[in-house]
Amino acid sequence: MNNEQIFEKVNGVFRTTFKDDTILVTRETTAKDIAGWDSITHLDIITGMEEAFQVEITGFEVMNLNNVGDLLDLLAQKMSE
């Protein structure tokens, strides 16, 4: 899976979570940028990523995610392992 495909899949998870087909995240997107991004939706995003990419994300990894870019890097790293 190339970076573009990962990015598209990540956007898909966001759109499903927020039930909004117009969402388009970037590497710089943070929780401040999307209305309704709270603890519950954040957990949905993490779970959604785990299912979509068939990986397991630990709490400590979640703690170090500051924006979507960090998430993309984490997913890319996990898929290469």
Binding site: A31, S39, H42, L43, V62, M63
Partner: peptide, 30 residues
């Protein structure tokens, strides 16, 4: 921002916080 419960846990861990106040639902995320 994000999952406050996780960030709170990180703060407790990183700074060795001894006096903690949390909503019970925080444990769901942890």
């Amino acid at each position: 921002n994000g999952i406050t419960a996780i960030n709170a846990f990180k703060a407790i861990y990183d700074h060795q916080v001894n006096f903690v106040t949390l909503p019970p639902s925080a444990l769901f995320y942890l």
